[in-house]
Design a protein around this nucleic acid. Structure first.
Lengths: 144, 144
DNA sequence: TAAATAAAAGACAAATATGTCTTTTATTGC
DNA sequence: GCAATAAAAGACATATTTGTCTTTTATTTA
């Protein structure tokens, strides 16, 4: 569904969100270990997210990545759009180039409904929503 | 959502289905042109589909690819499974390795419903269902 | 100001997906 | 049996994604 980079981005955001609530910053290495991902690769992804203002960063001692209050409201959809673009918004499931409301493929309308729910889900769920269940061990960012 | 190979496979199956109803066989080149895809690449994909018995083929003069009655009942899901595997059945949307009913990520249950509809759609729609709308110019396998 | 820290940037490498070309094998019609 | 046809197979090439390593830049603390 999403690229590996995008999955990493989502996990990294969740990780940083949870660990930076107390005002602390989180380093690349800590993020990488927390989500079981290669650190240099995560570094690149975080730079991308930083350029797109989805995450804040500070260099130097005690530096690292963190989320501001407003950024806790970032939705999964925002992250997906930042990394994978808006394919899921526009593309035909079957990959037909000429599929639209005017020339709908046989599954167009049915998929339109499904897509609506999918997008609603991605837009409704914000990074901040993940803090508590993560705190409470309801789910895990990596195999334990 | 699906790999390029998988999208090609679906389109190729639809194309062959429509053009082989009259007992004729369809050649690789004709398929490739009909769906606007590279012919050698399509050849490989068709070999794969052939090995997995989703399409029949005959070598030599008047040979080519075709579908038997039973194969008209092949669903999109069947093709997806043959080419991309069963990722969409099993994988967490967020890519979490440890997401399950026991440790559900915050969108697990919501996505489960969406996935149910998605899979139902893919399993319900068979290749044969596409013949008529394609005949009637309701949709197109490539840009015209 | 110097040393330590940590992100930013960019070059490089490996893996995978996609695409191209050539040779081999099977079938048909003459 | 021979020539023509068309899929099967496999080698090769390119592009994209993913992953690694090194250098640079910014910041802090002593």
């Amino acid at each position: 569904m999403f690229s590996k980079s995008c999955e990493y981005a989502i996990k990294a955001m969740i990780c940083i969100s949870q660990k930076s609530r107390n005002g602390k910053r989180v380093g690349v290495i800590e993020v990488a270990e927390s989500i079981d991902a290669p650190k240099h690769f995560i570094a690149k992804i975080l730079q991308e997210l930083s350029r797109k203002n989805l995450v804040k960063s500070i260099k130097g001692l005690n530096g690292g990545f963190y989320l501001e209050k407003a950024e806790q409201k970032t939705s999964i959809a925002d992250i997906v759009k930042a990394i994978d673009g808006d394919k899921i918004y526009n593309q035909c499931v079957l990959g037909l180039k000429d599929c639209s409301q005017k020339n709908p493929c046989p599954v167009h309308n049915e998929y339109k409904e499904i897509k609506k729910h999918l997008i609603a889900m991605l837009e409704k769920n914000t990074i901040g929503n993940f803090n508590e269940p993560l705190d409470n061990g309801k789910f895990f960012l990596k195999k334990i």
